[in-house]
Write a protein that binds this DNA or RNA. Structure first.
Length: 496
RNA sequence: GCCCCCAUCGUCUAGGGGACCAGGACGUAGGCCUUUCAAGCCUAAAACGGGGGUUCGAAUCCCCCUGGGGGCACCA
């Protein structure tokens, strides 16, 4: 398939909070399209809202994006030919362009106080009208307005929506969206502080930074025509607009948002991308998961390593309808990606989790454990639970748990003693002969292999569920195995 | 209230007039395998929201209704 022209695509989060999976998904699509077309993936920080500004957010954006492997080509931290990439550092640019708009008659100063605006809104609400600016300052002669501004009167700048009129905006996924201009408000472009508002800053920066494709959330659909009007006022060519579907809560009720963050997390689910890391999810699995909410390739492939994601991604296959997130599918993808890792690489990913758990985990030890758990874990932290017994000196076990299935206490103790004898007699705990010896023992004792293995599992690991027994015992080592079996029989022989 | 968007199994989706008694995936149920748990394999239940058109023919095109979502700030 012939790729299109190199695209310049931007991810432009606002540092008002942590990056959630919806944002991560947008970043993924941005990244994929830029890489697919051989273009650039640009990171821009939209920090024009100083009231909601969170100083830690920007750093977390970096950390999240880096963890996910979505590397950007231009951004606040690495610069680039179209900087600065932080909107708060682009004030002069906004000043210059707002003047152009005013001079062209496409924007005007507004001196209405917050109180008056509030009154207007209340009145409109009483009359059941949609709240909007009433155009009070729209007709002030430009010269007079400039004088008042020069005299120091507080003001904002509003966009002068052409009236009457009708505006058609084109979204790649939805086609033409036409609205009456009467339904578009004279939005504020520049606040009284001189700070631009999203509607102005984003549009300006997208153009100035040469953005060719704008991928953003569908919450921008209502103001989409306004944005088109601003492009037209400047006489600029528009980018390709793509409004992404929103992510809904697992219930499908309401959009997944920061408001639900705590509730979601308490259910051991996270809406913040970085939390997924601590929960034992692989970045490639997270990407695979979020990528498939709102995008699909065909009717059978769902597993996408990054290289295939890039080669097979296309904007046209994006789905405009909202999608409810499904966390169990994340588990599924995580399992798939864990199994796709080389054991060496899995070991790398596992090490931090063992360290985190405070276990004396040496890489060499973990690399022995890795193949035993690779097939059976869905999240990395599960490996720790499953393998905990490898690191413990003492294995606390209840007496009842040690009794074999359908066996008496006495029979159980006897079987364990016999097993210990067999293990002691072996030259080495080499896999195949070791297993055979135990199976032979089970036969001799007239037990099913499962009965014997079950008791040994409990005695040696202290767990009902564990990695394969033979391999586990080999790793634990003969001495410790015998010691644990010995302790188990002692418990069984006690106060029978 | 007004404006905008969306609509296939519980969920994510394939489908772009006949190839669909609608395919895949997660989950669920059952089975096989099996030293536990998984993994793997097999099977099953499960959907085109409703009503009108257009057409020889509609999940696919149009309209209405309904439902869901989003937005209506000197927030993004």
């Amino acid at each position: 398939m012939m790729p299109t022209q190199p695209a310049r695509v931007r991810f432009a989060p606002s540092p008002t909070g942590r990056l959630h999976i919806g944002g991560a998904r947008t970043a993924l699509y941005d990244f994929l399209y830029a890489r697919k077309t051989g273009g650039q993936f640009i990171l821009r920080i939209e920090d024009t809202d100083r009231k909601r500004y969170d100083p830690e957010a920007e750093q977390e954006f970096y950390e999240t994006l880096r963890w996910l492997g979505l590397d950007w080509d231009e951004g606040p931290d690495i610069g680039g030919p179209f900087g600065p990439y932080r909107q708060s550092e682009r004030m002069e640019i906004y000043q210059e362009y707002i003047l152009r708009l005013i001079d062209a008659g496409s924007a005007y100063y507004c001196f209405c106080s917050a109180e008056r605006l509030q009154q207007v809104r209340e009145l409109q609400q009483k009359r059941k009208e949609p709240p909007h600016y009433d155009g009070h300052c729209r007709t002030i002669p430009p010269d007079e307005a400039k004088q008042r501004v020069a005299a120091g009167e507080p003001s904002v700048v509003r966009f002068k929506v052409p009236r009457p009129g009708r505006t058609t905006a084109v979204d790649l996924l939805r086609g033409e969206i036409a609205v009456e201009n009467s339904s578009i408000d004279d939005y504020i472009l520049l606040k009284s502080t001189g700070m631009p508002v999203y509607h102005f800053a984003a549009i300006l920066d997208d153009h100035l930074m040469g953005i060719t494709h704008v991928l953003r959330g569908s919450e921008w659909l209502p103001t989409f025509p306004l944005h088109v009007l601003i492009y037209e006022a400047f006489g600029w060519e528009q980018p390709v607009w793509v409004h992404l579907s929103v992510l809904l809560n697992p219930s499908g009720k309401g959009k997944l948002s920061k408001r639900h963050a705590n509730a979601e997390k308490s259910g051991s689910r996270a809406v913040f991308a970085l939390d997924l890391r601590e929960m034992g999810y692989l970045p490639e699995a997270v990407l695979n998961w979020i990528g498939l909410m709102g995008w699909s390739y065909d009717d059978h492939q769902e597993f996408f390593p990054m290289d295939e994601f890039i080669s097979k991604f296309s904007l046209e296959k994006l789905n405009p309808s909202p999608a409810a997130v499904n966390f169990s599918k994340l588990d599924h993808f995580n399992g798939l990606h864990i199994r796709a890792l080389s054991t060496d690489e899995l070991t790398n990913r596992l090490v931090p989790f063992f360290e985190q758990a405070g276990l004396p985990a040496e890489r060499e030890m973990i690399s022995e454990i890795t193949p035993l758990v690779q097939e059976r874990i869905r999240t990395l932290d599960e490996a720790v639970e499953m393998a905990r017994f490898f690191f413990k000196e003492e294995i606390p076990v209840d007496r009842e748990d040690l009794i074999g299935k359908n066996l008496s206490t006495d029979e159980s103790a006897h079987a364990l003693e016999q097993a210990a004898a067999v293990i002691e007699s072996l030259n080495s705990l080499e896999q195949a002969p070791f297993e055979q010896a135990l199976r032979d023992l089970a036969d001799d004792l007239d037990l099913k292999a499962g009965q014997l293995f079950g008791m040994l599992r409990m005695a040696v690991t202290g767990q009902r569920v564990s990695p394969p027994l033979i391999e586990s015992m080999t790793i634990v080592g003969r001495e410790k195995v015998l010691d644990r079996i010995q302790k188990a029989t002692t418990i069984l022989r006690q106060s029978g």
